[in-house]
């Protein structure tokens, strides 16, 4: 995992960035679930979905893509753009869908447990 030392602990972000970072693989799989996409588009989707709050480092994403491709959860292919740089597109595989579903399930369960343990009711302590 790539971590920029300047943005570690005493941070102003109102959420746990390292916790989010731990789910990068699943987040990318989730983005790709709808349609195939390329690096910058995936980056933008994640950034915009969080309202610009959470900007994942692109370096982290490249490591994620390589891992996902190696595990066969995602397939990569070069696009045939005529102008500008060629784009590398990523497409989720059936194995990727299964892993995504499993991870979402385990996250939902974990979240419930943590909420119970922290005595959270309706999002406020």
């Amino acid at each position: 995992m790539v971590q920029n030392p300047s943005e570690s602990p005493p941070q102003s972000e109102p959420f746990a960035a390292d916790l989010l970072r731990g789910h990068t693989d699943t987040i990318v799989l989730g983005v790709l679930r709808g349609a195939e996409s390329y690096g910058f588009e995936i980056y933008k989707t994640i950034r915009d979905a969080t309202g610009g709050l959470y900007e994942i480092k692109e370096a982290t994403l490249y490591a994620t893509y390589r891992r996902l491709v190696k595990d066969g959860l995602v397939e990569a292919s070069w696009g045939d753009e005529t102008q500008g740089g060629r784009r590398k597109y990523y497409r989720i595989t059936d194995a990727g869908r299964a892993v995504y579903a499993k991870n979402v399930q385990s996250w939902t369960a974990t979240q419930r447990i943590i909420n119970t343990l922290l005595n959270v009711k309706g999002g406020t302590p």
Binding site: Y38, G39, F40, G85, K88
Partner: peptide
């Protein structure tokens, strides 16, 4: 080579944005 090309094209998109 692949990685470099991929990073380059993504950076170009970001710069354009």
């Amino acid at each position: 080579q692949d990685l470099k090309e991929e990073i380059r094209s993504n950076m170009q998109s970001r710069v354009a944005e």
